[in-house]
Design a protein around this nucleic acid. Structure first.
Lengths: 222, 222
DNA sequence: GTCAGTTAAAAAATCGATTATTATGTATAA
DNA sequence: TTATACATAATAATCGATTTTTTAACTGAC
């Protein structure tokens, strides 16, 4: 979608869209919950029209379910959907990463290092709040950015948002998280070495480990 | 997206969404055109609120570009985007078709034959209007339906709509169209034989031929 | 008790009007 | 001319109120 990047000017509608997207991905709504539009209006101090426009966009994006005449609800979570999302991430991000390694230029290399560095700084503070989430997304976006396909990037972005609904269900898991954090650097290394085979293998492993975390969260979630 | 299937109950918003989607895919708006909301309101006899909600959804879906404070416009067409879309179709539909062949049951086989039959009847009448388009989409949806991934299906649907913006730029091309129509049956044959290798090869060829048609249309469009 | 039918309350969808922003045109100064 | 400031028109975005539909609550017959 990339829609939530660089909204040069902001309208009430685009602001509430971005806020709701963050809150949905961050798990501030219960899965399956029916959204009380009036309550949202009050809570976010926003008018009905921009709010409804944002909800419509989020439904088209897949972060809400819209049922005619009965409003919007948060999609439920399921093991099978998590599997689906993780599988699609494996396929699409793997593909994109390989292509990025083939096409990426030296500017990309610099941006990779920068993004990895910023993320590492955030890793160190054990407090992984919203700021870490932003840097983490940014890092993964950078990895695949020069893959050459706008649509591929769009789908990956969408899958990340979906995946994070599961990953962010519970509190952090320091042990696994540390392994994952280390892999970020190795991903950059392999990218710089243009070793697309090894890079893809590591990306597969990275996504698979993330999947295991997300699955655990989902199962413990009850 | 699949959103435009089975809208059990319809609201003004969902109706105008579906109408606009069809018209956008069918090329009834010029690429790059800025949408005059008031004109749309009159033309489609619909109120402002449902219209804006539909436009917002279409923007999130990728059939419109939304620019804050300056409304909506039809995305431009470009050779590179057509290449991107066709490539993604190759990857994703190929993947989905293989999986469908592995998972599809006998009910699927029946539906395949039915969809192919309906399409063939429409093929024969050289008039390929909106009805043919519906049956054609339906056929391709059926081919990949039991692939097991909701997200894969969603992405493919989206890519088809994008692809058709190019394919439907100009009038029909009987010669190529006939070849493509014949391939529909062969695709069913190979699916029934569960020959996923050959099936994927033919799917690749089918998409590639369609791409050539779309490219020609785009180039002649000028 | 429970089920169908009815009514009241709540919520969703839509309308009509208002406000804010951008685009256009015109006059004036460099 | 060219550019700049200002006024005006056109359009986008938003608000507040109304209509429509759904959900919940209630009633009485079986």
């Amino acid at each position: 979608m990339n829609q939530h990047l660089q909204p040069v000017i902001s309208t009430a509608s685009s602001r509430i869209y971005e806020t709701l997207r963050r809150d949905l991905v961050g798990g501030r709504f219960a899965a399956g919950e029916k959204l009380a539009i009036n309550a949202l209006k009050e809570h976010y101090h926003v008018g009905l029209s921009p709010l409804r426009e944002a909800l419509n966009k989020l439904a088209a994006y897949g972060l809400l379910i819209q049922e005619n005449q009965r409003g919007f609800r948060v999609p439920t979570l399921s093991r099978s959907e998590l599997d689906d999302i993780a599988n699609m991430r494996l396929e699409l991000e793997g593909m994109a990463f390989e292509r990025a390694i083939q096409h990426g230029d030296d500017i990309w290399e610099a941006e990779l290092l920068a993004a990895a560095h910023r993320l590492k700084r955030a890793d160190l503070s054990l407090e992984k709040g919203e700021e870490w989430e932003v840097l983490h997304s940014q890092f993964h976006r950078t990895l695949v950015a020069p893959c050459g396909s706008v649509w591929l990037l769009r789908f990956i972005e969408q899958l990340h948002d979906q995946f994070d609904r599961y990953r962010r269900l519970g509190p952090k898991m320091p042990t696994v998280r540390q392994t994952l954090d280390e892999q970020h650097h190795e991903l950059v290394e392999l990218a710089l070495q243009r070793d697309s085979k090894a890079a893809r293998a590591l990306m597969d492993d990275h996504i698979h480990k993330s999947y295991q975390v997300a699955l655990k969260r989902y199962q413990e979630h009850a």
